[in-house]
């Protein structure tokens, strides 16, 4: 799909994410908006999937390890047709809703893995990638983690496994927005040198603008061509990207837009379609 078209879809998914948080009165808009361009590129350009057959065994897999960013994921799945008609009212985080506070594989069509407890997605993706190789399937496994999330120890356990098993069918996006729930990443752990860390674990590492669709596409293509090692694509992103009042403002890690702020989102992001 063309870059301009993908940009337009990303903008619309951003609106849908904000809409579901506004209507549901709870959620994490900043993280959702920050990964909109990566999720859009994956679901509308890159991934080999069949929304009518969500458990197709040859499909590419996706894990949103930073599960709190799920509004953008739910919007992408809806727009891609996983729920039949596009969802009018998500009822995000409501009792009985398929749109849980964090993704749940047995409740939501298209969700390949339950996620949200930070750090676990990479190791689970290793399992999926190992299964792919073991069964001689040529699917890829994509994961999005946050730059705060990778403080979890299990990330580096998984990083070892991915490298030692030469999982070149695994592509990890690090959403590097330099923030985590409690503040700035570098204030929290003294540095945010993601690239050096993954290189030290013997991964193929690229660093790109996580909002530039063209760069995302090219990075995926290069990652897929790199044989014998897993790939990390470090995406420099802006938390809350797309809405001025949210951008780089960590108060929007979690929060609900006011009526006025929602009106701005409608205006800036184009509103419902």
């Amino acid at each position: 799909m063309g870059n301009e078209e993908l940009k337009e879809i990303a903008g619309h998914l951003r609106f849908e994410a904000v809409r579901m948080i506004y209507q549901g009165k709870d959620g994490h808009p900043g993280p959702a908006l920050g990964i909109a361009d990566i999720v859009t590129t994956l679901y509308f350009d890159e991934m080999n999937i069949d929304p009518e057959n969500p458990k197709w065994e040859d499909r590419d897999r996706f894990i949103l390890s930073k599960g709190h960013a799920c509004p953008i994921y739910y919007a992408a799945l809806s727009e891609r047709g996983y729920f039949g008609k596009k969802v009018k009212e998500y009822k995000l985080r409501a009792l009985g809703s398929k749109f849980q506070g964090h993704p749940v594989m047995n409740k939501t069509e298209g969700v390949d893995m339950t996620s949200g407890s930070l750090g676990n997605g990479l190791s689970i993706a290793c399992g999926m990638a190992i299964a792919g190789k073991y069964n001689k399937k040529d699917y890829n496994v994509f994961v999005i983690v946050g730059d705060g999330e990778i403080q979890e120890g299990i990330i580096w356990e998984g990083a070892n496994t991915a490298a030692s098993k030469k999982l070149d069918n695994l592509i990890l996006f690090v959403d590097k927005n330099n923030w985590q729930s409690g503040g700035a990443v570098s204030d929290t752990i003294g540095s945010n040198n993601v690239k050096e860390k993954f290189e030290a674990f013997n991964w193929h590492v690229q660093e790109i603008d996580g909002h530039n669709i063209d760069e995302i596409k090219k990075a995926i293509a290069l990652a897929k061509s790199k044989k014998g090692m897993p790939s990390a694509i470090i995406c420099n992103t802006i938390k809350g990207k797309g809405l001025d009042f949210m951008e780089n403002n960590n108060l929007w890690h979690k929060g609900v837009p006011t009526d006025d702020q929602y009106a701005i989102a409608v205006k800036v992001l184009g509103g419902a379609k």
Partner: peptide, 28 residues
């Protein structure tokens, strides 16, 4: 040898890897 997956001294990783394998139809 292919059915033996060594993940190193990393139990959380072992269980999570197994979850990923099971989601793809294996019995780990």
């Amino acid at each position: 040898p292919e059915a033996y997956i060594e993940v190193g001294i990393a139990e959380q990783n072992a269980v999570a890897v197994a979850a990923g394998l099971a989601s793809c139809g294996q019995i780990p």
